[in-house]
Nucleic acid binder design. Structure first.
Lengths: 154, 154
DNA sequence: ATAGGTGCAAACTGTTTGCAATCGT
DNA sequence: ACGATTGCAAACAGTTTGCACCTAT
């Protein structure tokens, strides 16, 4: 964990940015919630525990910066709220999301199932794929047992 | 075209809603721009030609209503703007998007390539898929020839 | 008359920005 | 001292909502 912070610090410094206390606190929150797809507001509230004086704008600026440096990934499920995830060190991992329409949970699956499709796209549509995202809406295993009372969204 | 409006009218009426002139004008705009992924503001401006007195709120309400009835699909590429598309009559078609990072164009491909994956999800993750979306970011055939000068986003 | 629908303006939400104060080197 | 960074508040964009009016039954 310290090693990963150190690594991020170097990434920042190599681009002329500093790892300020606020930025470090933000990164730590992201590290501690790596699987959670936090919104900026979520991050803000968690960071306040570590650095109570921080402002929401700083969190936004930090997340934006980290996103520009491809240290975090900014994503966006259809609800108009940006969510942020630390990118995993190795490989441009493509994660896919299982979004439960009942409880709102977002699980991740990491397999890269789409390589064959990308090849097909290149061939049939002459489209050069740089990245992709794949989200499934449905019912997660946790909710599948409960009675299906409220399956209509909102 | 008139037939499709008639069909939508019946869908509305079967749920107790009316096809008011404003709603009809909105639907016509969607029909005339079926491939365009219009934002609410786009729709608003186009509808004003047909029904100048219409308010933006009505457009939002209409799009929301049509979305609830699954007549249009509300979608959202990462830019914080909701976009709307008429759903194609037949089948719950899953369209996938080819988003060009150079020119911003959004092409659609209609094939349903993911059925095998959905089966695998059910088996391996016990996730019941209701819908999915798949977007590819990359370079479209139109831009691929031009020199690759400006590949950095924003 | 009554319920649904509309236009307008105000409210709200998530995000960005201007700016003066502050920090680290 | 200098440029980068911060906190705050105000600005912003897209969307939603409250409400009085309207319009078909």
């Amino acid at each position: 964990m310290e090693a990963r912070i150190e690594h991020i610090k170097q990434q920042l410094q190599s681009q002329g940015y500093k790892l300020t206390p606020q930025r470090e606190a933000t990164v730590r929150v992201l590290l501690e919630n790596e699987e959670d797809h936090l919104s900026a507001e979520d991050v803000f509230m968690l960071v306040k525990d570590k650095a109570p004086e921080i402002g929401l704008a700083t969190v936004y600026r930090t997340l934006e910066l980290l996103s520009d440096l491809h240290i975090v990934e900014k994503m966006n499920f259809g609800d108009g709220v940006a969510r942020y995830d630390l990118r995993h060190e190795s490989s441009k991992h493509h994660h896919h999301h299982l979004i439960c329409v009942v409880c709102g949970s977002v699980d991740e699956i990491m397999d890269d199932w789409l390589l064959p499709l990308e090849e097909r796209l290149a061939k049939e549509y002459h489209f050069k794929v740089l990245d992709h995202r794949l989200d499934f809406q449905g019912v997660c295993w946790r909710c599948k047992d409960k009675e299906p009372e409220d399956m209509n969204k909102k």
